[in-house]
Design a protein around this nucleic acid. Structure first.
Lengths: 161, 161
DNA sequence: GAAGATTGAATACTCAATCTTC
DNA sequence: GAAGATTGAGTATTCAATCTTC
């Protein structure tokens, strides 16, 4: 919030940014449409269920699950409610501290993840991993982590108001 | 859709993919929240208005605008309806071919873009461009374009059914 | 009939307000 | 009172169906 003339993007920056914007507008829908067609769930549904499938006892606290899936607690809560209604997940309070809620993947939920995983991984390989060189894959990781770190910093700056 | 054992991700791929997923789940909300706070619009609203602001006569066909903003025609149509109600955009049929609809940025829409741009660009610099080296910015462009190309290919494969 | 565009219904997301447990 | 979690209202997105114009 300064009055100085903003530093507009130069040509290279502009191009790179446009590619990035295109990516995060198109990649999610591309992954969603494969999963929706083949398993009837969204990418975010898959993230939630697969995070549970890899957890000890197929169980995680809601707040842990939210961190793992990059979601707000509110969004996660809504999504898990739907999952519970469809019988994929069960929730119950932590006996040692009632504030924590444990979400557990049911057998039906497990079966769904097992059925959905191969097609999802194949699509991720097809459009992301296989077209890139190993060096590019490493570079993508570095770039992604660097930006995530800044997002984290920016959001904690604005939250301590 | 093959029965062969799927090629699961190795460690490096897993890490890189997780970073990418985190990125496209968090980056949009980070950009949205800055624009929402400072200008009362979403990132996608900004993309639409700013695309018009850079077009000849501040005017584009709906279908062109959809391509530029990576949106479906249906999503764009809904968004532009709202923009029209707020007086930021006007639509009228192409006199030479009534199937085409021209969307034109109004003076109010222009003012909004002008007001919103500096803060948005500053946020993009802050969390994306400035933390990366010039080489990384070039690499990000290459990676983004490569993946977009595959997404394009995959979607045209599935549409010619 | 095909391309461009819109509509409406179903679904999902966001934000602020609320509730519970410690 | 603060952390964890949920709720509901308002808004946005998606998908299929429809409408127009050529």
């Amino acid at each position: 919030v300064t009055d100085a003339e903003p530093r507009w993007l130069n040509c290279d920056e502009e191009e790179a940014w446009k590619a990035m914007v295109g990516l995060f507008l198109r990649l999610p829908s591309s992954l969603d449409s494969q999963l929706q067609r083949d398993a009837g769930i969204s990418m975010f549904d898959y993230l939630v269920l697969s995070a549970l499938s890899m957890a000890e006892n197929r169980t995680l606290r809601m707040s842990e699950l939210a961190k793992l899936t990059n979601a707000s607690l509110s969004r996660l809560s809504n999504v898990v409610s739907r999952h519970e209604q469809r019988g994929w997940v069960r929730r119950c309070a932590d006996p040692t501290d009632g504030r924590y809620i444990h979400a557990t993947l049911t057998d039906d939920g497990w079966d769904l993840v097992v059925r959905a995983a191969p097609g999802h991984v194949a699509r991720v390989r097809e459009i992301v991993l296989d077209p890139l060189s190993p060096a590019q894959i490493r570079e993508m990781e570095a770039i992604g982590k660097r930006i995530l770190q800044e997002i984290e910093a920016a959001s904690s700056r604005s939250s301590r108001t």
